[in-house]
């Protein structure tokens, strides 16, 4: 088994949340993603033993969903929405600018393993189009200029935790909803930040 005790302990906790072991498959794959930045074959073997299904069944699920990466990702996963609301609000220019800045095509990772770029379908922020996600932390109303600024900021400060609210304040524009609650926790890896998975951290 290639997972350390801490991770295994966490995995077992997650499995206990479900009536059937195999139901924990999705969250466990997120956990694997947060560990390696992608779903490695080793992780698949570990998960298959934990939930009691075969390796190829785990592989089948992990390759079906595009949020489970099959290749290692950079420190920051930049997802720019290309669906209709964002497209109307000039997301293609945002995509161009980000690609220009990072020098990456779709689904590519740079050599320093800092950025992975992807143009994605709707991320549920149509009210604040165009929207961008960094490690699944959403920033809305991003102009092409601010997109470049966001990338520059990430490149220069290399924060370990990216927090949606912080990025929204510095680089965002119009928002779909104002939740009126300041949330200081953010994602620590290219897996989405879930408290139960401990893939979030509070930024001080």
């Amino acid at each position: 088994m290639s997972w350390d005790d801490k991770l295994l302990k966490q995995a077992k906790k997650i499995i206990k949340l479900y009536p059937q072991k195999r139901s924990a498959l999705g969250p466990l794959l997120h956990l694997a993603q947060s560990k390696d930045g992608y779903i490695s074959d080793d992780s698949i073997t570990v998960i298959s033993e934990l939930v009691g299904i075969t390796e190829v069944q785990v592989k089948s699920v992990s390759t079906f969903y595009s949020m489970y990466k099959q290749e290692p990702t950079g420190k920051y996963l930049l997802s720019v929405c290309k669906s209709i609301s964002c497209e109307i609000n000039n997301s293609s220019e945002v995509i161009n600018k980000v690609q220009e800045f990072t020098g990456l095509n779709n689904n590519e990772t740079d050599e320093e393993e800092l950025f992975t770029f992807e143009a994605v379908e709707c991320i549920g922020a149509c009210g604040g189009a165009p929207a961008v996600q960094v490690n699944y932390e959403t920033v809305e109303g991003v102009t092409p200029e601010n997109a470049i600024n966001l990338c520059k900021w990430l490149k220069e400060t290399k924060p370990d935790v990216v927090v949606a609210d912080e990025m929204q304040e510095n680089f965002g524009g119009i928002k779909s909803f104002d939740w009126a609650i300041q949330d200081n926790s953010g994602a620590t890896s290219t897996a989405p930040g879930f408290q139960t998975l401990k893939t979030t951290k509070v930024k001080k």
Binding site: I53, T54, V56, Q57, S60, T63, F64
Partner: peptide, 10 residues
């Protein structure tokens, strides 16, 4: 009961 083949990718 030995699912060793499955659909991969999408």
């Amino acid at each position: 009961g030995d699912p060793l083949i499955e659909f991969i990718q999408r």
